[in-house]
Design a protein around this nucleic acid. Structure first.
Length: 557
RNA sequence: GCCCCCGUAGCUCAGCCCGGAUAGAGCAUUGGGGUCCUAACCCAAGGGUCGCAGGUUCAAAUCCUGUCGGGGGCGCCA
């Protein structure tokens, strides 16, 4: 539609189309039209008052797509022919259904997304939640724009901490405790060992043994890994998130030498204080540590190796790392190393960072000191609350029904509660936030959806392609316009790697619908048929939007 | 000390990419709304020097510089 305005204005003013396109905006207030063109830049060009220019153009312009084009002050306000828009948008939605909002923008392109990446033997914390669900949402967005996506869960399953764990387990470990609550037991051991300075040397020795392939060390490592993974999978299945590839740092253990040799052959590595590093001071980003003075590798080495391997496997057009902002320096460094090593695709790697969850004092949760918030506890607590709410509100529901609704509602609260935030912002962790079901929350959206579906059910509505479009009320117009915006919101959200735009859109749309719901009857209205198809379209778009955030709607609530 | 991110209503946050018309929500507060498609809802009211100071511009919450405050990071953890 912007294109059409640009065409019109181009003919009228001679201004280049691209410039016009970038000037067109959507007014905040619908009484100022659907699109607006500010005439200030024309005023400079024509050396005339912008108010007059707007007036002149408005008296001499018309198009079948717009029912009105009027000058308000220095603006030209374009009012779409709403009947026309309603008919095209609603028919499009009802025809495309779950495909509405998707496109073929990314056809033929592959995107690798590195997400979640929990650390073995550590609790799946609230921080991993962000990476998991933001990364997953970005993947959903990319997929709906036609990209081929590969989601990789790159486990933190290698590193010095395993030396610490094995040494600690040898000293304090109890088989029974490990079976009962593996992550908690390992976490306790880890914290204990970290505090105990006498463990340092032992830990280092164990990790070196592990890297050397020592059978005993490997046995422990595998045990810890398997048990942790089992716990993580519980959370993933609850969140309904699947990965295309389950990988881990350990996978590249054997390829590490090749990477180091490659870097050496490019003359990038130098010895410093017994360690091997790539000096990046020239770029103002310090040095990248490749091998420790005791011979062990570091995560930069593993990440570089993994990146090369992934490029060889997938020939990606872009690789997105959804990882907390605290690691930005690390990503800058190893992207630079890849670039210096001559890999052109290094420029297609991007660190999509997110802010941290901070504790009540506004400080980072420190896993090394055992200060974390366990995701499974939050999940359990939220589900429990949802169950109580349901039991209070509705009787005669089967246990099974209550259980499944409670799960959906709790999930929507958690997913939406996180995804509605701009990802770079730090968030003060507050359990109340997740337990709130009113206002700008996931349950509000599910409720609104269920309401809409309820109307359709009561009316025994059947979609039909023959819709009579009458004149629209103000609210109907606003809903139609909002529905028409969805595809561009999807695109924008992906381009900015900002799922919160989808969340914000969903909420605004739901608010509009609720207003409509209260003000205007659907069943029994003169234009009942049209309104039913509007309700149908609305619920479809809300469903599509939420599914991008991995929130699934429920028919009744 | 250097680098990155954030600073918008009492609280939690949108809006900033790509500058435009009176800066928006939710929560909380106050007051309304049910014989009517689900009140996890809706309506109304109060509440803002968009951290501060400069600059660019016809126009700045939005762009640039500086500054203050908070958070994170800065070689053998990941």
């Amino acid at each position: 539609m912007k294109e059409k305005i640009a065409d019109l204005m181009h003919k009228k003013t001679g201004l280049p189309k691209e410039q016009i396109l970038s000037l067109i905006e959507i007014p905040k207030d619908s009484s100022l039209g659907d699109y607006a063109f500010p005439c200030f830049s024309l005023s400079i060009l024509l050396k005339k008052n912008p108010v007059e220019i707007a007036k002149e153009i408005s008296s001499d312009i018309s198009s079948p797509d717009f029912e009105n084009i009027q000058a308000v002050g220095p603006y030209l306000n374009f009012f779409l022919d709403r009947k026309h828009l309603a008919s095209s948008v609603i028919q499009k939605i009802l025809k495309e259904r779950s495909k509405y909002g998707s496109s073929t923008l990314g056809k033929g392109k592959t995107i690798v997304i590195d997400l979640s990446a929990p650390n073995i033997a550590k609790p799946f914390g609230i921080g991993h939640l962000r990476s998991t669900i933001i990364g997953n949402a970005i993947s959903n967005l990319a997929k709906s724009l036609g990209y081929k996506t590969i989601k990789i869960n790159y486990l933190g399953d290698w590193g010095t901490q395993f030396g610490m764990l094995i040494a600690g387990y040898k000293k304090w470990g109890k088989e029974q405790e490990l079976k009962k609550n593996p992550i908690k037991h390992l976490q306790d051991i880890y914290v204990k060992a970290n505090v105990d300075e006498s463990m340092e040397q032992e830990a280092r020795d164990w990790f070196r043994k592990l890297e050397a392939g020592d059978k005993d060390a490997l046995k422990f490592w595998k045990k810890f890994r398997d048990l942790s993974l089992k716990e993580f999978n519980k959370i993933y299945s609850l969140l309904n998130i699947k990965f295309d590839v389950l990988s881990g740092e350990s996978l590249y253990n054997k390829k590490m030498d090749a990477t180091i040799n490659l870097l050496k052959s490019k003359k990038l590595i130098k010895k410093d204080k017994g360690a091997e590093v790539v000096d990046l001071n020239l770029y103002g980003i310090g040095v990248c540590l490749i091998r420790k003075s005791d011979g062990a590798t570091l995560y930069a080495t593993r990440d570089i190796t993994a990146a090369i391997d992934r490029y060889n496997s997938y020939k990606f057009d872009k690789m997105i790392y959804e990882v907390g902002s605290e690691q930005s320096l690390h990503f800058k460094q190893f992207f630079k190393v890849l670039e210096l090593a001559g890999f052109k695709w290094a420029n297609n790697c991007v660190h999509v960072a997110h802010g941290l969850y901070l504790d009540r004092d506004g400080k980072k949760f420190a896993t090394r000191k055992g200060k974390t918030i366990s995701m499974s506890e939050i999940l359990d607590e939220t589900i429990e609350l949802a169950r109580r709410e349901i039991e209070n509100r509705y009787q005669d529901l089967s246990k099974k029904e209550i259980e499944s609704r409670a799960k959906s509602i709790a999930l929507s609260a958690i997913l939406y509660g996180d995804l509605k935030n701009y990802r770079m912002n730090d968030i003060i962790f507050d359990i109340e936030r997740f337990l709130s079901f009113e206002g700008d929350t996931g349950p509000y959206l599910l409720y609104t959806f269920a309401r809409a579906r309820n109307i359709l059910r009561k009316a025994k509505y059947k979609p039909s392609s023959k819709i009579e479009f009458s004149d629209l009320s103000d609210l109907e117009k606003r809903i139609v316009f909002a529905l028409s915006q969805f595809p561009s919101v999807v695109e924008n959200s992906y381009m900015q790697y900002s799922p919160n735009l989808i969340a914000n859109y969903s909420f605004q749309l739901a608010q509009l619908f609720n207003e409509f719901y209260h003000k205007e009857k659907v069943i029994g209205a003169e234009n009942e048929h049209f309104r039913l198809s509007l309700v149908d379209s609305f619920s479809q778009v809300l469903k599509n939007a939420l599914s991008l955030l991995n929130i699934s709607v429920i028919e009744r609530m």
